[in-house]
Every structure is written in structure tokens, then in C-alpha cells.
Design a protein around this nucleic acid. Structure first.
Lengths: 155, 155
DNA sequence: GGAAATTACTTCGAGACTCGAATCAACGTA
DNA sequence: TACGTTGATTCGAGTCTCGAAGTAATTTCC
């Protein structure tokens, strides 16, 4: 039985992810970040409203206790601050500190420099993004999944 | 600063990976597999020569102790068998058992059924595969990385 | 207004995952 | 035969993830 195109796509896409993680490992270590904390940091956009723990758990596909654990590390490293949401005092919102913003920018810059996708031409990237958008859009509607990865973009 | 297309691609691709892992979690649990053991199982192709520990560590982007740990679980669950490579008695090769082959087939089938990529048309999948091949091919040459994910394919 | 259910989060305990250091057996070479 | 190298394992430590249980704040419903 030979391999379908779908299987080849899944395997290749996974390979890109693993390769990327492998390549940025040294940069994360320099910043005092682990893969999990780096990912959490990435998903806090300093230009948007501070996300709640619930929102972050959703974005990270992890459960609440796990996010508490990750957040503790980020707070300890002084990359984020927990504060009570005045609108709902059960909820805690996460805001980046100044060094958190710097670390986040470093992680993103390193990733974009080292990702295998960086080899693609702008035209190929646009085509790839079109396909990824098509891949994710129906899924989000269907599952009510995390915030779409396909937000505002500037070529 | 708005987000580049490259960043959007990286984020979307990562989102697909996480979404896939999330969706197949129940199937893995049913099979008595964890994400790590399932990934290892996937990367042992029963139609090819049994890979050595070194080869598997390379494919999984992990180090030797970690692979020993994962392999122990797979051997314990009787999905794979360790045997000494007669050609080099330092080396151990991994072969799938019958139930290992079944579990592997189940994991792959579930993944292909649940991956967001499954929504793409055959034409889109071919186009996507072309871009992923382009993404990975030069990287493999440059790093001497793991076995390419772009092997024989049948539409 | 107040009891009951719900929601957001945390703590705790257990197990999975990953790594570096140290060790061992087998191979290659001189 | 002695020496350096290689493939794998064991060990200890730290990270990651989850379910169960608990706390505080909110909402619902009478």
C-alpha cells in the first residue's frame, strides 16, 4: 500500500514543525524559555487586550492546571504579570512585561529566520497561506476552536 | 507592526499540528499510546528495513536516552521488538509486532480522517505538497537532517 | 434576597517526556 | 593487544500534562 498525498502532507507538515522546534531550541534556552513557555509568550499579543487564563488555555490546547503551571514560570521569570480582571474577579488576565515583550520579539524573529518556510518565495508563501486558511477556516466554524490563526496580515 | 505572511504561515501551520494532536488524543488513548509512542510507531514503516535506535532518534528529533525510554514503553506494550543487528552487534533494530502494525494503521487512519488537511481538495493537496516539498528539500541537503518526508507518493 | 448551580482558577499527586552525565559493550585501527 | 570511537542504556533532574479536589466569584432561579 503506497502513501496517499494526504498522508505525505501530514508527515511533511509535522516534519517542518519538529525541524523548527529543533532549530530554535538554542535561542529559547538563551532567553530562559522552554518550548511551552515560549509558545505561551508568542500567543500573548501585546497589541491586543490581555487574554484571560481561559483564553490562553484554549489557544494552547491545554487544560487549566497546565496553563497555571506554565504561567507560574512566566511570572517567576518576570515575562508576564497576572492581574485580576475587574470585570469578572474570578478571571485573571495576563499582560507582558517589558522584558516579556523583548523575549517574545526575539523568539518570533528567531523562528521566522530559522523556519524552513523562510526558503519559500513571497509568491509561494502567499499560495501556502491561502491553502492553510482554507484548511483552518471550516474547522474553526465546526469546532468553535481557538482564535483563528488567520487574522490580520500585511504582505 | 503588522504580521508578515511568513509569520502567519508559521502560526497557521503550528495551529494545524496542535489541532490534529488534540483531535486524535482519544484514539491514541484507546490504543494505549501516548503522543510520543504513537509518533515513534508511525515512523517505523513495516515495509522497510527495521530502523536502528540511532535512526529512530534522528527521525524523532530526540536524543538516545529519550528514545530508549519511548522504546521501552512500546516493547512493554508489545508493539515493537528490540533485536540485535547481526551486522553490528552494538546496534538494536526495531521491528513491529502484528499488534504494532495494527495500532500503527489505526493511528494513521484516524489522523488522516481527523486532520484539518482532509478538507482540502485533491488539487489543493497536490499544490500544498508541492510547496511543502520545496520547503523541506533544501533544508535536508543543508542540515543532513532526518529522512525526508517527501518519499514515494501515489495520488 | 438567598440557596444552588456554574464558572475561572489553583493546588496536589501521578505519570509522561526530555535532557546531560556516566556507563557498558562492540567496533575499528594501529 | 591497546586505544579511541560508536550505539545504546541507566540514572538523576527538571519540564510537561492531566484528572481530581478545592476555593472564590458569578449567575440562576425561586
Amino acid at each position: 500500500m503506497t502513501r496517499s498525498i494526504l498522508e505525505a502532507v501530514v508527515v511533511a507538515s509535522h516534519e517542518v514543525s519538529m525541524l523548527t522546534g529543533d532549530r530554535i531550541a538554542a535561542v529559547l534556552a538563551e532567553q530562559g524559555l522552554t518550548p511551552a513557555t515560549a509558545q505561551a509568550l508568542w500567543l500573548i499579543d501585546p497589541d491586543e487586550a490581555p487574554p484571560s487564563m481561559k483564553t490562553m488555555a484554549h489557544r494552547l490546547f491545554c487544560n487549566a492546571p497546565n496553563l497555571s503551571f506554565i504561567t507560574n514560570q512566566l511570572v517567576e521569570r518576570e515575562f508576564v504579570e497576572r492581574s485580576v480582571d475587574p470585570a469578572d474577579r474570578r478571571s485573571r488576565v495576563l499582560t507582558l512585561t517589558e522584558s516579556g515583550r523583548r523575549a517574545r520579539a526575539t523568539v518570533i524573529a528567531a523562528t521566522l529566520a530559522l523556519t524552513p518556510f523562510a526558503r519559500l518565495s513571497p509568491e509561494d508563501l502567499r499560495e501556502l497561506m491561502k491553502l492553510l486558511r482554507k484548511t483552518l477556516e471550516p474547522a474553526d466554524q465546526e469546532t468553535g476552536g481557538p482564535a483563528a490563526a488567520t487574522g490580520e496580515i500585511q504582505g
